[in-house]
Design a protein around this nucleic acid. Structure first.
Lengths: 194, 194
DNA sequence: TATGTATGCAAGCAATTACTTGCATACATA
DNA sequence: TATGTATGCAAGTAATTGCTTGCATACATA
């Protein structure tokens, strides 16, 4: 079975499942979206569930967030965190399909949890490393790195999700505006005042 | 049809849907969980979807967060926000089933969005009122109340969701610990220093 | 007692859906 | 040319599922 066909099927599956959920996405839907025959899906993957498992097992191989991003940090908290937040949002957009599976497909979540958790975990580790570095430079007023990392992720995750669910019916400002201002708040809280 | 039966069906439906999603929850499941006959469900509500609509329309009537909670505020930011955060988490637990429908049941989300949005909206309004009051007292260093409210909600929402999804596999501290410490951070950021 | 109302139970229907089978076709490579 | 491999297509199967129907039963109230 051709690799390009396999890839098309995987992409279509992730797209549809993240939109409609696992159960509501039929193999006919996937076939149509991928522009292949439904039978081809079963010949390639065996079953519907195996498409998802195949897609998520890729997470095992590749680091969702590259630690080299820390090399771009300047030591200016506001600038750095803004950059990291944009990285988070970019990452979220790229992996949205996969992340949404976690929320929208309770039917298979337990089975794919171990793969999905790599996404937030990877980001958390990068953040902790960043805060450690800044603490050593004497820029932070706290050494509770895990809490800081987790607060930062929760803030962004919560926002992105509410934004995705309710958009401007609930939120009176743009994505960029929120990120910028919430980081200003965040920095105000953690920077060492001297 | 008896009201207690109707109530049992609604509760079971919300519980199951918030766990398994709309599509994966069958009317047979609901009947079993509620301890009634499947036919009774259709005699009471007509269709599966109408159970959900009936349940969520209750949100139209009742304010999810009572504004009188603001009377309990002392003017001590840390204390007040801790109280409000616990209220948020309590509210989340109570309404969890409904909130989860928003995330887990894309199939019906568009139809029930207008009801569900009342939950975060109500909380946001209460928070904005609180921040306004504190600002008038000269306790805040910013008047961007909506942003503050939204950052506070995002932070808590994001945490609760990640906690619900990955629990202690991702998070190294307890619910209470996170709330307490993240509020300390938050307060540090917004309180006027003089 | 009689009548209406709420519920249970057994059966079933029609649509959907994951998955299969058999066969035709295109295409590449030996 | 011949053979294997990837795909399309038409048809079908078995299970699930939302919903219906017909009938029995319990219970309350007139």
């Amino acid at each position: 079975m051709g690799d390009s066909v396999k890839e098309k099927i995987v992409m279509s599956t992730l797209k549809l499942i993240s939109e409609k959920g696992y159960k509501s996405t039929t193999t006919r839907n996937i076939a149509e979206e991928a522009g292949v025959n439904e039978v081809t899906i079963f010949r390639c993957f065996g079953s519907k569930k195996d498409i998802v498992l195949y897609a998520l097992k890729e997470l095992e191989l590749l680091k969702p967030v590259d630690e080299r991003i820390l090399d771009n940090c300047t030591g200016n908290l506001k600038e750095d965190l803004l950059m990291l937040a944009h990285e988070y949002h970019k990452n979220f957009t790229e992996e949205k399909a996969k992340i949404m599976i976690g929320l929208r497909s309770p039917e298979i979540f337990e089975e794919v949890k171990e793969y999905l958790i790599r996404i937030p975990k990877g980001f958390k580790e990068v953040l902790i490393k960043y805060f450690e570095k800044m603490y050593e430079k004497g820029l932070l007023n706290t050494d509770d790195f895990e809490l800081l990392a987790f607060a930062f992720i929760s803030l962004n995750f919560g926002f992105v999700l509410m934004n995705a669910s309710y958009g401007n019916k609930l939120i009176g400002f743009s994505d960029r505006e929120f990120v910028k201002k919430s980081i200003e708040i965040f920095v105000k809280a953690i920077e060492k005042s001297d």
